[in-house]
Design a binder for these strands. Structure first.
Lengths: 330, 330
DNA sequence: ATGAAAGCGCTAACAC
DNA sequence: GTGTTAGCGCTTTCAT
């Protein structure tokens, strides 16, 4: 039925070992026998069995990726960065969506470890002790992507969320805004907490009183941002600027303003986050904090390959961010 | 170092086979010994090696997915449908992006076959003879997702592209439009060809002359749709309605119209395709042909599981489409 | 430069 | 209900 390395060896009149050598590109094979073997492989249509190879070599050339949701613009873009570099180093990637659910995250990681992946890329929200313990129990390298371990024990690649938020809010403050809304999500999460810190610090540094009514915690999607913003803008003390957790919400904020007859950026300025493609698919185009998603993915994967090969490397990488100014701010 | 099934057997005082039985949930194990084994597994922190299992059982519980680009909204959404059902049946998915490049497609499929995936989901453009031959050479089931084999030899799940285009154009014609632009891509591809056929047939059935200037072939992205539409709308004989290949282009068409002072839908009506989330993230919201991406993915994966288990099933599934009418049409 | 042989960790008959 | 044994298809010493 299936043709194995043994069949090739017999047809070529050599041993298993020799076939293995030419398949794996070993140098020490006489050109003439190499040719014989290649011919046999061709004739038989031999395809090496990666599972058998994996068992014997203890390497699967597969890496596992756990992320919240592959259908999200943000993670899909990031995944592409991962994939391209993985490909470059001849790794395949098994992608699994966790929906940020902790039990599912744990289960998915366990499953990937059973599959003997050579490394793991973890993109999630909170890193709990349970995560740390699980990661510790494995013998393969793991890198946290677009987030980090507050205890600085696990390798990671990310941007400085706090500084990024600080920069965005300062940008707004310098234009004279005093009532700046922060549309964010799940405040108990590490990520949102950092952004909030940056927001608060920026206000403080510019002597603006913090008003908790300006901070709203909602699901990070268009619809909730749309209705929330609509309500806020109808208030007596409406915000004059809005800083959102992502671009989808930023677009919603623009639309909310426009729907009730306000002008962006004259009546209200808006800054999004991430610089996903969609930030240019709205009028006025959305000013946003650039988080280099593709690069974060790519750098993470590159770091992982180094870790797998025990190469020297920094294990906490912070990529630069910046503000891309478009028309939703003056 | 790594704990194997053998270690568990020794600690529990049973044989390999018994451990294997409890791990795989076989019925014929005495409750008391099952408990002993479970305890040993717990104590040792045993994790079954899926690679070894795969080699012995000739099943990897992994399926391969080849798609054009995981960072695209359309394929990411579809991938999520695939993943959810895969998960339900305890399969993992290896995702690889082909960029619609034929050589890369072939290479990726070969690679996945080497990895001994239990089945393959292929989302691509053209199915060439080379594809057919490659698919035929494999012993695992393959299903074409969101496209089909003109020769009807390969299982597939999709919508009726031609009819969908026909419906959209007819919808426009019935409102009195005579100059309907078709913004499409790579006309030589099977997919675009079907859409064009539907477009032409709809015009013909309503006695409207076909004008080749109304059909433009461009990269299916925002920027090219934006500039192309801008140019078209400035023409003397500008179209009064636009039907685009996807929603991204539909949004671009709306913006192009607005940028030159035209009103949507009063001056020009626009219909997109796919009903991705973004079709609601624009003002006016985009009328679009609904292609149920998530469902296509889910149904494909379900079909694949049936094929893997040799169950009876239809092998060509056509899912329903419809037009979601929003504000970009009157 | 090439071959022989011992695993890699597990499943799946087949026996008891 | 449980144990024995023979592979699954390959890599990798160690000889030669």
């Amino acid at each position: 039925m299936t043709v194995t390395i043994y069949d090739v060896a017999r047809l070529a009149g050599v041993s298993l070992a020799t076939v293995s050598r030419v398949v794996n590109g070993s140098t020490s094979v006489k050109p003439s026998t190499r040719r014989k073997v290649l011919k046999a492989i061709e004739d038989l249509g031999y395809r090496p069995n990666a599972v058998a190879r994996g068992l014997a070599s203890k390497k699967t050339t597969t890496i596992g990726v756990v992320l919240p949701d592959i259908s999200s613009l943000f993670f899909a873009e990031l995944a592409r960065g991962i994939e391209d570099i993985a490909n470059m180093y001849h790794y395949d990637i098994i992608i699994s969506s966790s929906d940020q659910n902790r039990d599912k995250e744990i289960q998915l990681v366990n499953n990937l470890l059973e599959k003997q992946v050579d490394g793991l890329l973890f993109l999630g929200g909170q890193i709990t002790d349970e995560h740390r313990q699980l990661f510790g129990s494995s013998s393969i390298p793991i890198v946290l992507v677009s987030s980090n371990d507050p205890q600085h024990k696990i390798p990671s690649v990310r941007i400085d969320q706090e500084q990024a938020a600080y920069d965005a809010v300062s940008f707004l403050v310098k234009k004279g805004h005093k009532r700046i809304a922060l549309l964010t999500t799940k405040l108990h999460s590490h990520f949102s907490q950092l952004r909030l810190n940056g927001y608060i610090q920026a206000l403080k540094d510019h002597d603006i009183a913090f008003d908790e009514d300006m901070v709203v915690e909602i699901p990070p999607v268009y619809q909730s941002a749309l209705s929330t913003t609509t309500n806020m803008l109808k208030l007596m003390d409406a915000p004059t600027a809005i800083f959102t957790y992502n671009d989808e919400m930023g677009i919603a904020a623009i639309h909310a303003a426009q729907d009730i007859g306000k002008h962006v950026p004259d009546d209200v300025e808006v800054i999004g986050f991430n610089n996903t493609r969609i930030s240019q698919w709205v009028r006025p185009m959305l000013t946003t904090v650039v988080q280099p998603m593709y690069d974060i993915g790519a750098v993470s994967m590159r770091l992982l390959t180094k870790l797998i090969n025990n190469e020297e490397t920094h294990t906490e990488i912070v990529l630069p961010h910046r503000i891309e100014v478009r028309q939703s701010t003056k």
